[in-house]
Structures are given as C-alpha cells and as structure tokens.
Write a protein that binds this DNA or RNA. Structure first.
Length: 106
DNA sequence: AGCATGACTAGGC
DNA sequence: AGCCTAGCCATGC
C-alpha cells in the first residue's frame, strides 16, 4: 500500500478541508485542485490514513461516477449517512448528481 | 532502477 | 449500459 508522503498529504487535505457542507468533490478533482493532476488514486490513500481525523470532511469525496467508492465493509453506509445529513441526495442507484452537489472550488 | 500496490479514470467493446 | 483494460501518480522494497 502506497503511504502518502507528508507533503502531499497536507496539500490534499488542504483542498478537502475547503469543501463546504452539502457539497461533494471527486478524487480526480481534489488531485487537480491540489496541483497534482492524475494523482486521484493518492487521494483515497490520503483519506485512508486519516482514520480518526475529525476536522477533515473525508465523506465529501466521491468517485467520478458520483458514487461512493467501495472499501471496508459498512464504511460506505456511514459516508452516505453523513452526506444525507448534510442534504446531499442519492438517486435509486446510489449516485449523487454532480451537477447539483458538485463543488467546483468556489 | 524495476515492480507492486490502490477510497481512481477515461476510453473501448 | 455495464464490464474490462490500460493508463495514472507516489511511495516502499
């Protein structure tokens, strides 16, 4: 498993920390906004290494399809719940409308 | 330096 | 419309 370097980790979290309530961003977006286009896969690991970080809204990061990326069993449901609490809605297939809830950095 | 590893993606079929 | 494949980046061995 590729541990994320400290510097990169900081840059990525800086972006994620800016995502407002009720909005979501994709992994690729975060990478781009952090000045590391293409490093989408690293974003997931950055968040993975958080574990107990409460300051970072890790749940507002989803994949390009607008869905929650599968990982440990049960974790997805937690993320979905947190998002729904903020007013983000899912369609019948479990996807979020990025046109409505996507955050473009402004 | 080469290879494996992933909460990813875009492009083909 | 799904599933598969091949690129993708950063880090460790």
């Amino acid at each position: 498993m590729p541990p994320v370097g400290r510097g990169l980790l900081r840059q990525l979290l800086e972006v994620v920390n800016r995502v407002p309530r009720g909005r979501v961003v994709t992994y690729g977006q975060v990478a781009r906004m952090a000045g590391r286009p293409g490093a989408a896969r690293m974003v997931g690991w950055a968040l993975h290494s958080l574990s107990d970080e409460r300051r970072t809204p890790w749940h507002r990061v989803i994949n390009a399809r607008g869905a929650i990326s599968p990982r440990g069993v049960g974790e997805e449901e937690v993320q979905r719940l947190l998002l729904e609490e903020e007013g983000v809605s899912f369609d019948e297939r479990g996807c979020i409308d990025l046109e409505r809830f996507g955050w473009d950095g402004r």
